[in-house]
Design a protein around this nucleic acid. Sequence first.
DNA 1: ACGGATTTGACAATCGTTTTCAATAAGTCC
DNA 2: GGACTTATTGAAAACGATTGTCAAATCCGT
Lengths: 137, 137
Amino acid sequence: MSDMNRKSTGPHRSTKQRAAIKDALVAARGFRSAQELHDELKAEGQRVGLTTVYRNLQALASAGEVDVLRTSEGEAIYRRCGTGEHHHHLVCTECGNSVEVGSEEIESWAKRVAKHHGFTPVDHTAEVFGICSGCSK
Amino acid sequence: MSDMNRKSTGPHRSTKQRAAIKDALVAARGFRSAQELHDELKAEGQRVGLTTVYRNLQALASAGEVDVLRTSEGEAIYRRCGTGEHHHHLVCTECGNSVEVGSEEIESWAKRVAKHHGFTPVDHTAEVFGICSGCSK
DNA sequence: ACGGATTTGACAATCGTTTTCAATAAGTCC
DNA sequence: GGACTTATTGAAAACGATTGTCAAATCCGT
Ligand SMILES: [Zn+2]
Ligand SMILES: [Zn+2]
Ligand SMILES: [Zn+2]
Ligand SMILES: [Zn+2]
């Protein structure tokens, strides 16, 4: 009952819904919006409320278990990545499939640019969007 | 050549509202959301409808006269940049001030990453967020 | 199984943005 | 200038994604 936790005050109980959401994200193997994930769960016979999908994706994201991006329309898309380490993505705009790309080149570029202009670096984005070989044929 | 095409679909009449919006963006010297710009116009005594601000920012953006980014919350922010050529940004998350950073390094990285995985490159994002020297005091 | 705290989910509310459509005003012709 | 045509404006309604509400369901330690 003490809260000597760190920044990530993760969930305390394990529920079927949370497991289903995690599984669906893993099976997706790419970026999905909350609504897409909800649709896929429904199609799969799982009954999980849309609100619950949003809440859990949120929790997973702030726990660092999933990555979040924004589409050019501003919609949040989530992905369960293979590594918890910082990385960037190559994303297919057609099917959401993506590749994780670590890049020391980008990291040093971001730091260099910030310092060169007297900024304290906080964050950076660097994602490549394209059409994957499967979708382009 | 592609720049000529973009401008052909531009607005046909010049209005006080459009001029006021452009001026406000220039004066801002950084990224602003549609609502922030609307507030600044109002504070300045200009009466421009919020809808008109949205519409003109949209038009300016698709004409290539302003750049658009998304905040981590998904809100669209706009900036009148000094150049029409492709570039990226270093943005202060406190005040919106930003620096344009051209980077052949990023361009080649994006192309290389896409090709290496069989993707047809479509677009890419690469922005650095931080606190500018003025805001970090 | 009991009981209390956590989690769920249907619904309402919110937020940024777009659409609608009647009123306004820019550009043109006289 | 004045009449005319039509792009543009703007208040309000509609919209889609996301968040808040809160009673009911569920998990879990005892
Ligand atoms: Zn694809
Ligand atoms: Zn990085
Ligand atoms: Zn600043
Ligand atoms: Zn670039």
